[in-house]
């Protein structure tokens, strides 16, 4: 593992929801017998090591004006993957882009999450991606209903 016991306690708090109060680390620091500055040093260190990828607020984007959100899956050949992935990564409306290992009979191996404010904007974005990447085969896999959305609890159990 990439972290020690104190880090584990910090990660356990950070993977959840920090209290919205003037000194959000105070309670944890007291429980751990550390200063708030110590906690912050450790968080900084965990960020540098890449254990914490991002720090701050997570919004519920469907409520933040992005109503036409779609998962779009593209068929990408072995030699096209990097170029297409890098082009898609450059779009600010694309939040996630992964090349995935998929069964041959499915074949759509590059996945992107596109966030648009209307269906028309979504279509325009897809057209732009097609034009810039030269890809031709894709499917839009729209979400009909959210069945579960939670933050991963990596660290479980009591302290």
């Amino acid at each position: 593992m990439n972290y020690d016991e104190d880090d584990r306690k910090i990660l356990k708090l950070l993977q959840g929801d920090l209290p919205v109060e003037s000194r959000p680390f105070r309670e944890l620091a007291q429980a751990m017998n550390l200063s708030e500055e110590d906690i912050i040093d450790r968080v900084q260190n965990l960020q540098q090591k890449g254990t914490i990828r991002r720090w701050g607020a997570v919004l519920r984007h469907q409520q933040a004006g992005f109503t036409a959100n779609a998962m779009v899956a593209w068929k990408v050949g072995a030699e096209q993957g990097d170029e297409a992935g890098n082009i898609m990564a450059g779009f600010k409306e694309i939040s996630h882009c992964y090349l995935r290992e998929v069964p041959d009979e499915f074949g759509y191996n590059m996945f992107s999450m596109i966030h648009a404010r209307s269906d028309q904007e979504l279509r325009e974005l897809i057209d732009k991606v097609l034009e810039q990447t030269g890809l031709t085969d894709y499917i839009v896999i729209k979400s009909l209903r959210e069945l579960k959305k939670a933050s991963m609890e990596y660290i479980r159990g009591e302290d």
């Binding site: 593992m1 993977q15 920090l18 409520q63 990596y154």
Partner: peptide
């Protein structure tokens, strides 16, 4: 309270701590 902010905290990189995930 209005549900616009889901949470405030850190996003842990699952690969960095050795976790595996799949769609």
């Amino acid at each position: 309270a209005k549900g616009l902010i889901r949470r405030i905290g850190g996003i842990i990189d699952s690969r960095n701590i050795g976790f595996y995930s799949t769609l």
